[in-house]
Amino acid sequence: MFQFSYLKAKSLADAAALAKTNPDAKLMSGGMTLLPTLKQGLAQPSHLIDIGGLSELSGIEVKGDTLIIGAATRHYDVASSAAVKKAIPALAYLASLIGDPQVRNRGTLGGSVANNDPAADYPAAVLALNAKIITNRREIAAEDFFQGMFATALEEGEIIVKIAFPLPKHAAYEKFPHPASGYAMAGVFIAETTSGVRVAVTGAGPGVFRWSDAEAALAKGLKAGVLDKLKVAADDLNEDFHATREYRANLVQVMGKRALQKLVA
């Protein structure tokens, strides 16, 4: 790796100040994506600002009808949290499928959401559950947050502090992982919320998106089989050496069916 300076932020305010003073710095939480990226020379920040251990970014709590998870909470802690398992079991399940055990022991919710990898799992939950991303500056609705491949509404130096998930009536997630990396080739998160059924798809397109045809079909009746005949348009999906866009379109439908079966079971 090329040379950079490591800075350990003492607080959220300190992290923001360090980011302001060092415009070419990168914020690092668990580093599960950033460190491999640096090793490959795909990014060359002047500094890494470590926010992984900040107490202001930690914690899991249910407040009224909302589950609030600190940005630096590790995937392992979400997957094994009794509070998450009780409030939104599908979210704990999703976290248990990310990468591998070693990755789940270091990688964080905020890091994954801020990175917005088009094949990451968390964006599907954040979008389907209509979560709010709370930063050191403002609150951002999931709808406005994700802006396509690796792009988000975050401004320079803006830091995700926590994410607030409104509790759904029911939710389910199913994914087809890439056999080597564990990333979603297609992942479908269905949430029955107070404002209707929301379906988010990750892994298949250039960024997480809502599957509006499925939402419309499920609005008419939330029962098994509803998605069986729904065709997914392949035109805008990703195509690479792992899979054609038609293959991914089929995977979206199959994962949607499986998630629905789980939801209504």
Binding site: Y6, G31, M32, L35, P36, Q102, N105, R106
Partner: peptide, 12 residues
Amino acid sequence: RAVKSCTMLAAQ
């Protein structure tokens, strides 16, 4: 906890 020590800085 198990971690991959090639993907963690000594400083961390």
